[in-house]
């Protein structure tokens, strides 16, 4: 799968409370959650994000609360993939489980700026910064996790399994 989109760039330690504040957790409807996505770190995001745009962030993206509402809100905003230096582990699990691909790019994220266009080849594990003409090779996910991802998430995987 090839993804191409405009970058929304954030820093280190973006926590799940700012991705989707708890005051909106009285709903688990993805559309409701998307209208408040990133609200406490970037109130301009929800109103301006376009389907296909890509979030790029620094270290430990998705730290804090285990709320799956966070990757759900991002996915429902039309963002097909998040690239970060590193991810917090519960967020990583949750994103894979709901079918939101993540790319751990390491410190190379420093070369990607807000508004850049990036192109991602998920199958070949290549990230290209189209704006800057730079290309990065990504470590493939473990095979077992790829299976969950290609099943479209954990539930489909489990359904086929038990």
């Amino acid at each position: 799968m090839i993804l191409e989109g405009k970058v929304w760039r954030y820093g280190d330690n973006v926590d799940t409370d700012v991705i989707i504040p708890a005051r909106y957790l009285n709903s688990a409807d993805p559309k409701d959650l998307a209208t408040h996505c990133m609200e406490d770190i970037d109130p301009t995001f929800a109103g301006n994000v376009n389907s296909g745009d890509i979030i790029v962030a620094g270290r430990n993206f998705g730290c804090g609360s285990s709320r799956e509402h966070a990757p759900v809100a991002i996915k429902a905003s039309g963002v097909p993939c998040v690239i970060a230096d590193s991810f917090a582990r519960i967020f990583f699990r949750n994103a894979i489980n709901i079918g939101l691909p993540l790319i751990e790019l390491g410190t190379a994220v420093a070369e990607i700026d807000n508004g850049n266009i990036v192109k991602i080849d998920l199958d070949r594990g290549i990230v290209e910064n189209v704006t800057k003409g730079k290309e990065y090779k990504v470590q493939p996910l473990p095979e077992f996790i790829q299976k969950i991802a290609s099943a479209g998430g954990l539930i489909n995987y489990v359904k086929g399994d038990c």
Partner: peptide, 25 residues
């Protein structure tokens, strides 16, 4: 399905937080 599930390590258990899909499965 709560990040502070790790609390129970105090009793010598392995305990960790997961998301809702992990819990449902």
């Amino acid at each position: 399905a709560d990040s502070h599930t790790c609390t129970y390590g105090a009793l010598g258990a392995f305990a960790t937080g997961v998301g809702s899909t992990d819990m449902g499965a």
